[in-house]
Design a protein around this nucleic acid. Structure first.
Lengths: 135, 135
DNA sequence: GGAGAAGTGGGGAATTGTGGGGAAGTTGAT
DNA sequence: ATCAACTTCCCCACAATTCCCCACTTCTCC
């Protein structure tokens, strides 16, 4: 399970350190894809396969074709380097409007990468409309 | 089951001794999250998974997304160290406004960590408005 | 009183996050 | 094909933080 939130940076080579608490879960292959909203999502290889399987079930062949052409080309399988970093492809960085300062968050079955300012604004909006944490 | 209340301290490294009576229940993984009110909640890994599962059921996909992005990033899985202590992440300490002196209370299925002064005030207020304990 | 457990403090080793050099591989123009 | 420019990958380096262990004091329980 991915929990917690970490403030990291992207260096000039497009690399970002994976929070140490997430590494062991991602060191056998990570799939980076466009996230829901202005962010990127990172899945373990296994979870990505499960999830894409679920999402393509029960679609008509036409919808399925469009869907597959939207999802798979935009994703990228990356390996964690010797220093525990992932390379974030330029195309994906642009999609999520990532500056050098990002917030990496664990969301149960996947990790999300947000531009730090965008994340902060999003959280403030949630806090304002929310009823507090139900724990 | 978690019962009782204990006055402990947080050291300069952010560590807090877990009351001995709680240790055996938490030594296989503890999840620390924002609590309801000005406190932190600590769950066993198993109970956390049950609870978060319950809370996400029956939500629309949009609500679910926002909800998950509020709950999971704010939590943190921690292990108890060799001396029976937990590290309380700085972000969570700030959320619950914890000074060095805290009160650790058992609340049936979870443990709560309160700043000692805040807890005391809260208890006095409850006693003042209540009719005593029904035992 | 003695033995063990509990709560606290701190030193040193290991890990983490970040930056950067340089070899190897790509690309595109000549 | 040749070469330069660029990208990608694999190291090494370093400061800061975290983790692991040892030590000390207090408390509890026979």
């Amino acid at each position: 399970m991915f929990l917690g939130q970490y403030e990291h940076s992207i260096d000039v080579k497009g690399r970002m350190a994976v929070p140490a608490k997430f590494r062991s879960q991602l060191d056998e292959g990570a799939v980076i894809s466009k996230g829901m909203g202005t962010c990127l999502s990172v899945y373990t290889l296994a979870r990505w396969e499960e999830k894409s399987q679920e999402l393509t079930e029960g679609k008509t062949t036409e919808d399925l074709r469009d869907f597959e052409r939207r999802i798979y080309p935009s994703a990228s399988e990356e390996k964690i380097d010797g220093q525990g970093r992932l390379v974030l492809p330029a195309r994906l960085r642009a999609y999520a409007r990532l500056s050098n300062e990002v917030t990496v968050v664990g969301v149960r079955d996947h990790v999300e990468i947000w531009d730090r300012a965008v994340w902060q604004e999003y959280q403030e909006r949630l806090d304002a409309q929310g009823d507090g944490i139900p724990f």
